[in-house]
Amino acid sequence: MIRLQWLDYLATLRERKTWLCGAMLLYAVLSIPVMLARPPAHVQEAIAAWFGHGGPFVLFMYVWIDLAMNKMVAFLPVVLASGIVLRERDVGVLSILAAKPLSMPRYFALRAVSACAVMATLHVGAQLLGLVYFTARVPGFRPLAFLAAMTPHLFAAIFATCFSAAIAGWVKHRGASALIGLAVLGLLLGLSLIGFYQPAWRNLTLVNPMSLGALALGNLDHLGPKDLAPPMLALSLLSLAAIAIGAAGVRRMEA
């Protein structure tokens, strides 16, 4: 099974949609420092109000997480996972693969894990590339705090991929699956930072899995394992649950 998972990951990595996602992330990495060279005054004021100060690193992290990576996490998981198994069924690949000794739920789980692994590869790749590029381009950039803050976000991206796959498992129509995935993930990500804007709602927003991925934004100066581990653990469990739910959805699907 490990060998099959590895081959499936490589196959997913070679797909055109993966290259499209990679190109989008590359654009995000390269463009954000350029956009941040002259941030609008109202953005700086808003960040100063929400986060207590408007230092350049906090401003950068807000822009990177909310305006770049959160948008990516609303879109890329849908591209990678909203059609898993459905695309194979629609184009006719599944009529061959479904006859192999692998049940449909297991095949779904295989494809979902590969999509997550590809999402993780792209996410980590973007952060590592960013680490090098931002160190040179962003004033006051702090590499360790950047990596620490982006680690829970990686888990949020993986959850978003599993969630998108789970929708595919139940909706069973590629177009509808993509639209629902985009709408729901867009909504969750749109509301993910609301706890920073409205501190009174902070606890309530923790039920939003995507908020867990951005929690580090409120505590960039003192990030430690006890800040990072709980959201990562919660997102891991939610990801596993999403794959299990999606796999249950394809149980009776025919090739």
Binding site: A11, R14, E15, R16, V91, G92, V93, S95, I96, A99
Partner: peptide, 15 residues
Amino acid sequence: TAGYLPAHYTLPPDM
């Protein structure tokens, strides 16, 4: 223990 070739199918285009 079985081999199967369906009448209508597509092979993974990127492989």
